[in-house]
Amino acid sequence: MKVIKEFRNKKPGFVIDIHDALAPSPAAIAAGTKPQESPSELADHLHQSDLLVLDYNLEGPGGLRGKKAREILRMVLSNNHFNLIIVHTGEDDLDEVMAECLLSLMQSCTSQFDGKLLAELKLLDDILDEMGDEEEFDRNHLSNIFSTQEYLEVRQKDALGIASFMRGEGRLAPLQKWGKDLGLKGGS
């Protein structure tokens, strides 16, 4: 309340909107049901705030680990009216929260690929699924040798990291070795 009062005392005052993202949507209430607002419905009335404090753990303990908050973050950042968004969380690993938020805002790499490469990736994914069914491959092992942080660094157009990966050197060498151990071959 002290912060809100301070915002209201400014001349001109800051725009303050307090909203419970877990509340049912107005359309749902009118229809006599109580589903929660979608992220896009929520973003529609959070359109002209100077500051948004977003609770990362909207689902509560044991929830979806920030999924709804990341969807809201993506929706509100698609408009031009926010000056600042602060993500509040009780999570222990803040680096992981930051990485998850960044990932949710990034466009998929595959959106830039042509049809031939997408077909090759689909084939690779099918092969890895088969290997997983036969317990020859564990997708979880991949996160041990290629962290989210390394992925984000590579996505920043880390040409040196990619070049050293292609040579089987540097911090991504274990990823290349893992691919070779699986029998994967580099393509053109």
Results as ranks from 00 to 15, higher is better:
M75D: 13
L121V: 12
G13T: 13
V76A: 02
L22F: 14
I145G: 03
Q36N: 09
L152V: 04
A69G: 03
A23P: 14
S40C: 14
P35Y: 00
K67Q: 03
Q107F: 04
Q107R: 12
I72T: 03
E150K: 14
P35T: 08
D17N: 11
M166H: 15
D17T: 15
L42A: 02
L105E: 08
L52P: 03
L142C: 05
T110V: 12
N9H: 11
L184T: 02
L22E: 11
N9S: 11
D50F: 01
K34E: 15
V87Y: 02
E71L: 02
V97M: 02
E91C: 02
D126T: 05
D158S: 07
P26D: 08
A21M: 09
E134L: 15
R167E: 06
V15D: 15
S40Q: 14
L52Q: 09
L152C: 08
D114E: 08
W178P: 05
Q48A: 11
E150P: 01
G179V: 01
L77S: 00
A119I: 11
G66Y: 04
K2W: 00
L118E: 10
L184W: 01
Q48F: 12
A173P: 04
D129E: 13
R8P: 05
A99Y: 09
D93A: 03
G115S: 15
P39Q: 06
Y56Q: 02
D181V: 06
F7I: 08
K5T: 12
A23V: 10
S147P: 00
N80V: 15
E71Q: 09
A173W: 04
A27N: 14
F82W: 13
N144S: 14
E120T: 09
F7W: 11
G179R: 12
G183C: 02
E59A: 11
G62E: 11
G170K: 00
E100P: 02
S164M: 06
K67L: 08
L124T: 06
I86Q: 10
E41L: 12
T33D: 13
N9T: 14
T148A: 04
R167T: 00
G115M: 11
L175C: 00
L51E: 03
V97W: 06
M98Y: 12
K177Q: 12
M1I: 05
K11M: 11
Q112H: 14
W178N: 02
L42Y: 01
R155F: 03
W178Q: 03
T110H: 15
S108L: 07
L105I: 07
L52N: 06
A99K: 11
K11R: 13
M1L: 12
G66R: 01
Q112D: 13
E136M: 08
L152H: 06
F14P: 12
E120W: 13
I145Y: 07
F137W: 01
E100M: 05
G60S: 08
D55V: 09
A119F: 13
D50R: 07
A173F: 01
R8S: 13
R155I: 10
F137E: 10
S78P: 10
